[in-house]
Design a protein around this nucleic acid. Structure first.
Lengths: 248, 248
DNA sequence: ACCATATTTGTACTATCGTCCAAATATTCA
DNA sequence: TGAATATTTGGACGATAGTACAAATATGGT
């Protein structure tokens, strides 16, 4: 990792005089999370992390044994709270009467914790989700196991819930569409500036609240689309969808 | 890069006796493309590439000067043909009369070249798109410039075309939804096995043809959704969307 | 205050990284 | 064929990677 000129000021602040970090282990975890989620796992060295945390490289080895162990601990920290939050929101969503509202609530229950879960509510959630996005692209082996163990259960629970709200759509299509949702979610967190650029400033890709609303709206519509075994996605004269404004 | 036990047989085949590669430069490019798109840029060493191509590490430096230069050349190879293909398909799509069909054709014009463009039609397109996905996650600086220079024009052209088919939806929403499309597209190519896993074998994530159809269907529906400034995404009793099968 | 334990430090090890270079070898064309 | 050029080779360079370890220091219970 070479980028980002410095921010030498911050590093200096971190180890002036002999001010001890109250909990160096946490500082290392936080620094690693931030750096990994920004530059990727491979591009960040243990020394980079130690320096950002104001610690000694050996300290990282002491607390987490290996670099993979450090990554593993980051996942352990976040997976529990995040999936717990998702389960709570999903349970609440299931109790929504109106089928249309329920579907939206389910999608929201999936998306929201990705932006806000974790210990640190201000940006902590997006940081971890961004990390997951990068790791799924880099294809780390340590992570692959956690994914299959921890996240697949949650994914199945959500797909099942969606299937209950849309029983006429084959599960296979819902798996695809849920997959697209996760991809869109990841990409939004990894490359938010692209949205700002392409919209020429009229949208802010880093505005989590707005991103969530756009994502939910688009996903609900995608989930409701006719499955592939039905040739016509929408009857020709589909004016009622947008009342007052015909398509042409 | 340490993974994947070996495939030592292939390497041996590549340099048996004194059989010279007819064009070592191409072999290096192909090997680099394959490895980068599988493991990421940072995880693959110049020596890995040279070995996979049956070449000498020094040969890579000779042809491409630096590792970044090699990556740059891969992008140069693919960007031209891919965007040309997209332009052709987009122009054809614009000529479709029916607005619904036109929208679908536009989306298809965007998605299709990502799976099939490039010199090598069998997997060559997906390989390069997978590479782009990984690079956007890793955030390489060399790539960021190419993206903004080469791809933003295409993106704008597609957003404009979509906007013509859906004039009642604000451009900002279409930017978001186009962004989601790209994210879904990337994620599908990066983690296709997840689809197979979650669908318990009833879907094949690596089936490009099927992935395209699912992606197009979901995206068209997402694009048509009511914009955020309209509170109700669909009027309550929306039965006509799926003729014959009411929502409940 | 003292000892046992936990943590931090500084340094060193080996491996591998990207890149360079001179010599060896192929290729091309007068 | 022979000279000019293009390519390949094998080895080397300094830099940096992850990790290990003994010494130094901080901490907490008695």
């Amino acid at each position: 990792m070479v980028r980002k000129p410095a921010k030498s000021g911050m590093k200096a602040d971190a180890k002036i005089a002999s001010t001890r970090k109250p909990n160096m282990r946490e500082a290392i975890l936080a620094a690693a999370e931030e750096l990994f989620s920004t530059y990727g796992f491979n591009a960040v060295s243990v020394r980079d992390i130690a320096q950002a945390a104001g610690a000694n490289p050996g300290s990282v080895t002491y607390h987490f044994k290996t670099k993979d162990g450090l990554l593993l601990e980051i996942y352990r920290r976040h997976c529990g709270p995040m999936n717990r939050r998702r389960s709570e929101l999903l349970a609440a969503a299931r109790r929504v009467r109106d089928l249309q509202d329920r579907l939206e609530a389910i999608v929201r229950a999936y998306v929201l914790p990705a932006f806000t879960s974790g210990s640190d509510l201000a940006g902590g959630g997006t940081r971890f989700t961004r990390l997951r996005a990068i790791m799924s692209a880099e294809g780390n082996e340590v992570v692959r196991k956690i994914i299959a163990q921890t996240f697949d259960d949650t994914s199945h629970a959500f797909i099942d819930a969606i299937h209950e709200s849309l029983p006429h759509i084959p599960r296979t299509d819902l798996v695809w569409r849920g997959h697209f949702l996760l991809g869109a979610l990841y990409y939004t967190l990894v490359t938010p500036e692209r949205v700002s650029r392409l919209s020429r400033g009229s949208a802010d890709g880093t505005d989590a609240g707005h991103a969530i609303e756009e994502l939910v709206r688009a996903t609900v519509a995608a989930l409701q689309a006719a499955p592939l075994d039905q040739p016509a996605p929408v009857p020709r004269k589909a004016a009622s969808v947008n009342p007052g404004r015909a398509l042409t």
